[in-house]
Amino acid sequence: MAIEADLAGPENPRRRDYLQYAAVSVAAVGAGVVVLPLVNSMNPSADVLAQSTTEVDLSKIEPGMAIKTSFRKQPLFVRNLTPAEIAAADAVPVSSLRDPQTLEQRTAKDHTNWLITLGVCTHLGCVPLGAGEGENRGPFGGYFCPCHGSAYDTAGRIRQGPAPKNLEVPKYNINGAIAVVG
């Protein structure tokens, strides 16, 4: 055909291919870069990240009691352990645990009686029972997740059931009777 006759000119085919490949590669890079802001826009926005710290008044929580509050839109359990519960937690050999941690590692210095954890089961994210009054605390006296039967002990450590890890301990400071979480 006439076009092909036109094409059979003195043009160097290697230079031509090179330019075309370069143009296509640049287009691919451009498309890739454009995807970044689109994906990034789905990350938490600045207002979500800046959500304020949560303050918990500890003075109203008697030993043996626990309260449920919220931190970054997640449930937060604050529990005042009794000496018996602390002793029960300390009595467990750490090496026998699925996620080995001592109660001391999971509480603030000099405040071992304050067990502050997220109320999010590490299995699939249900809220375990045990923080509310009269709720089932499970076989280990800590928390019990009714969804799939994970049981946590008085240090919030996983002892039985499918959950892989202990209940998460958020960053917090205790100033007098106020715990500042976050």
């Binding site: 802001p37 689109l38 990034n40 826009s41 789905m42 990350n43 926005s45 600045a46 207002d47």
Partner: peptide, 29 residues
């Protein structure tokens, strides 16, 4: 549309605060 609130009370804010200021690259979108 993932960041827009379609309500008379919230639409202006979701665009001019949420999308324009807080959402990552929201101003670009």
């Amino acid at each position: 549309a993932m960041h827009f609130h379609s309500s008379a009370a919230g639409a202006f804010e979701s665009v001019n605060v949420g999308i324009m200021r807080d959402v990552n690259a929201g101003w670009f979108l």
